[in-house]
Design a protein around this nucleic acid. Structure first.
Length: 491
RNA sequence: GGGGGUGUAGCUCAGUGGUAGAGCAUCUGCCUUUUAAGCAGAGGGCCGAAGGUUCGAUCCCUUCCACCCUCACCA
């Protein structure tokens, strides 16, 4: 009696440690080495008729998600990689010793079970246990079986619990895996070669962003975590690769919000002898392919919008887009007049960082939210695009495009600048922006210019964010929902 | 960084200026086809942290911490 009183005041973890010790005392190893599985839960359910007919014994394993004991018989559900299946334990079938062990099981324990399959009176396909064993004793209780784990912070900090109790969360990451797989399949099929380039870089470049810095002790040098891999992939084009891509983790030392994570995944690709028109079509085909492979349809359902991807995509030069949505004809205005026009229309702009930044501000505020249907925004002003080739018909513009879907900027692409003297001038312009206080102005990379001076073929290039693509495919509004372990402050 | 919100049992959530409640989970007993199993009983809480007001604070005030939404920054 006294012992019971002590026991009931203990928390669930302590109770389970007690059970663990009791198991060891009876010679049961609560953490054995392996278990031979013959079927996953889904295979049993899919092949039920044959398995029942043949009276074949199956062996399945998984995590206990529910237990119902009724005196001398009981049920439980185990969950494995592919789903759940019910197990029936009958004292007469498993014997007194195992039945006593069954009654000591806790939700969360991982068990393996052998038996024949059958259908219960209520019609549920189940395994009639003939034997079972504990494969791993769980010491902590799982979240509530009905409501699951809801607390967002706990879901991110303890993603393993989120994955165990929320099936739809697991599906997001299955979709993420399929997405990356299908991107590779598509590009491989088109003859692209996958490469790997440095994450630790002595100079950073290829995008406008603040970097993370680190230090190599032995070399005694500062290094940056890459913000993009563009300049390395272009060196490979110089080196004779004609179609390359990289699935790359990039790092940007900037604010976090629902569309930005300091660590994120990009795909960059470069194709020699192509221009941005070719890349536009390649991107459209890629998105349609990936969507079909992951969702089985070319229609995206995002929030309350339905978007058919398999069609002609709108194409709209950025300055025309601004005229369309604000009435401002920026080409006919000088800088002062443009700033005045913005003030009249109450558009908030940062006028200290040059004309390119002003255009960018107007675009983000007034145009971007309207770009729900797939749209290529093209031909950005040259000040905004230091790595893009000047437009063949207009020296103030570049051959550049950014695809937009559901208001998200999905990527960035150019006819790549391959004139080394022009490229040097663009870097000089960036230096001036840096002096104006633009922390994201791009650095001059002498070796990159040297490579280009050996001759880089005309090239089309593209970078796109995988996380945002997965957000669209899984109908998520926060990037953290598509990152397994999002960045959080320490507990 | 600004604005708004949340933080109570392992989980999901109620609630009150007089130190707390439900369901699930846990423990004990009964129950040989149950399924959010059932029935009977029991245990479990520094009410995010630190100050303040008060006879008395989980509740009111201040500060801090974490998370969410939003704006700003940012491809």
């Amino acid at each position: 009696m006294g012992d019971h009183e002590v026991e009931t005041t203990e928390d669930q973890r302590t109770v389970r440690i007690g059970k663990l010790e009791a198991l060891r005392e009876t010679g049961v190893n609560p953490y054995p080495y392996k278990y031979d599985i013959t079927h996953r839960s889904k295979q049993i359910i899919d092949n039920f008729e044959d398995l029942e007919e043949s009276k074949l014994e199956v062996a399945a394993a998984g995590r206990l998600m529910s237990i119902r004991v009724m005196g001398k018989a009981g049920f439980c559900h185990i969950q494995d990689d592919l789903g759940q299946i019910q197990i029936y334990f009958k004292k007469d079938s498993v014997g007194d010793e195992l039945y006593a062990l069954y009654k000591q099981l806790d939700i969360g324990d991982i068990i393996g079970c052998r038996g024949k399959v059958f259908r219960t009176k209520k019609g549920e396909i189940s395994i009639w246990a003939e034997s079972f064993e504990i494969l791993a004793k769980a010491l902590r209780p799982l979240p509530e079986k009905w409501h699951g784990l809801k607390d967002v912070e706990t879901r991110y900090r303890q993603r393993y619990l989120d994955l165990i109790s929320n099936l739809d969360v697991k599906n997001i990451f299955l979709t993420r895996g399929k997405t990356i797989r299908s991107i590779r399949d598509f590009l491989d099929d088109k003859g692209f070669v996958e490469v790997e380039t440095p994450i630790l870089q002595p100079l950073y470049g290829g995008a406008s962003a603040e970097p993370f810095t680190t230090y190599h002790n032995r070399l005694g040098m500062k290094l940056f975590l890459r913000i993009a891999d563009e300049l390395y992939l272009k060196r490979l084009i110089v080196g004779g690769f004609e179609k390359v891509y990289e699935v790359c983790k990039d790092f940007r030392n900037e604010g976090l919000d629902r569309a930005h994570s300091p660590e994120f995944t990009m795909v960059e690709l470069y194709q020699a002898y192509a221009d941005y028109n070719d890349i536009m079509e390649l991107y459209r085909e890629l998105i349609i392919y990936v969507t079909r492979e992951t969702l089985g349809t070319s229609v995206l359902s995002y929030q309350d919008q339905e978007i058919e991807l398999d069609c002609e995509w709108n194409r709209l030069p950025v300055l025309e887009a601004i005229t369309k949505f604000t009435g401002i004809d920026s080409e006919s205005l000088d800088d002062k007049e443009l700033i005045k026009a913005c003030k009249e229309k109450q558009i908030e702009i940062d006028e200290s960082r040059g004309r390119g930044k002003i255009i960018d501000d107007i675009f983000k505020e007034k145009v971007q939210p309207n770009l729900v249907q797939p749209t290529f925004i093209t031909d950005h002003p040259v000040e905004m695009s230091p790595l893009a080739k000047v437009h063949r018909n207009n020296p103030k513009l570049t051959e550049r495009f950014q695809p937009y879907i559901c208001g998200f900027e999905m990527g960035n692409a150019f006819s790549e600048l391959n004139d080394p003297l022009d490229q040097r001038e663009r870097f000089e312009l960036q230096k001036q922006l840096s002096k104006l206080g633009d922390k994201e102005a791009q650095m001059l990379d002498e070796d990159f210019l040297r490579a280009m001076e050996y001759g880089m073929p005309p090239t089309g290039g593209l970078g796109f964010g995988v996380d945002r693509l997965v957000m669209l495919l899984t109908n998520q509004t926060n990037i953290r929902e598509v990152l397994l372990f999002p960045q959080l402050k320490p507990e």
